[in-house]
Write a protein that binds this DNA or RNA. Structure first.
Lengths: 227, 227
DNA sequence: TAGATTGTTAATCGATTAACAATC
DNA sequence: TAGATTGTTAATCGATTAACAATC
């Protein structure tokens, strides 16, 4: 895509995926009162190459200064802005089961500007419950609520069977981002942002690596025990 | 590492990360009674290239047959074995807060051979509670319990402040895999498998993309030209 | 056999790392 | 100014895609 002069150039998702981690380390440094840091020092802390750090940051413009390094506070703030943490995001949780309620109770999100506005569930037994002063509503109220409350993120914590249908409803209602915990790949228009958290996939990956390493040990020269 | 003749060659984490997704689609096909599928057809279903599928699968040996394709049931089973789903894994959850309890209640894990054996929390108010017949125990019992119950995976759902210390205890006790939900990068020996689920990182990534797309729309002529 | 489709090699693409000139 | 360290270009590496010979 030819980019307009004001537009950021297209950043790879690999880089974007690393931003929260930079943000986390910079936040810690800031809390420790560290004022500036070189890509070299940061790279040792984070166990990545200094090259990668400089390359990554330069996607967004010159945050550093030759001969000085990076100002921790400034860089922290700038990355925070890139991540949209300088604004407020209203979100709803769809699916008030264990996971949905757990996420609803996760206070840290609020600190970052993500405000839980509503929860929904199709189970009448859950409707009416409260999670941090937010009442669980029936699914029928979903569209109205989203429209009236300026919701921009929907968190999907429902079984996969219902996920696709709910996603369609969300898209039709104008939601622009879905944080998807349902164990299915949603089929939505490409302008809708979807971030998947497939917990079982993650667990299986761990299981693969566990099995793999055990196997290596058995096959290698008796190596390190399995017990 | 020089590999012995019996040893699988080293597979990139990119490939491994895709295995659970293959497994998921193959499971659905199997449930629908589909007997065989070509890399071409599967690629259309999964929205990846047929080349990638063939390349990925061939890391593990020839699962297919020229002129025929892949037998769905067989491939499903083989990938399941690669993912270690043919064995039983005993796991404990450390941190019995909302997230820990939600994961403990997640029945699907059990179906795949992951059995919740114990839960731990340092909060006396949570100790004694039950999650699916598993009692929450005090942290003092952690080491003994792990040793006596053949635990191989620990799920860490505690605040980041305590995570590093608990991880050290786990490593000393001989745990071999950690599913880490604490918002911190654990420092453990490389033979310990760690799979991180950094929920806030994930949400921030979504937030970046949301902000980014909004920005593009405002700046571009409102166009759909994402990419 | 002829057609289909894999397994695998070769080409391309993208991401990471290295190097160094620019500059604070 | 001299030293430090970035920003950025060039080199390398790895992952993805394309092509096609092998083979069912």
């Amino acid at each position: 895509m030819e980019v307009g002069i004001l537009e950021e150039k297209d950043i790879s998702q690999a880089v974007i995926g690393r931003l929260p981690r930079y943000f986390r380390y910079l936040g810690e440094l800031r809390d420790e009162g560290v004022e500036r840091i070189s890509s070299q020092d940061l790279s040792e802390l984070m166990k990545v190459t200094a090259s990668q750090i400089r390359q990554d940051l330069n996607n967004f413009g010159g945050f550093g200064q030759q001969g000085y390094g990076y100002n921790v506070e400034y860089l922290y703030d700038e990355i925070g802005k890139l991540l949209g943490l300088d604004r407020q995001h209203n979100f709803v949780i769809i699916g008030a089961g264990n996971l949905g309620r757990a996420l609803g109770n996760y206070l840290n999100f609020e600190r970052r500007g993500f405000i839980l506005r509503g929860m929904f569930d199709q189970d009448p037994g859950l409707v009416g419950r409260e999670v941090r002063n937010v009442r669980v509503m029936p699914m029928e109220e979903l569209e109205r609520f989203i429209r009236e409350n300026d919701i921009d993120i929907a968190v999907l914590t429902i079984p996969k069977a219902g996920a696709e249908e709910v996603a369609d409803r969300l898209v039709r209602t104008g939601i622009r981002a879905i944080w998807n915990f349902a164990h299915v790949d949603l089929n939505v228009p490409e302008e809708i942002q979807v971030e998947n958290v497939h917990l079982s996939d993650s667990l299986m990956k761990l299981s693969y690596n566990l099995r793999r390493y055990t196997k290596d040990c058995e096959e290698g020269q008796g190596g390190i025990d399995r017990r």
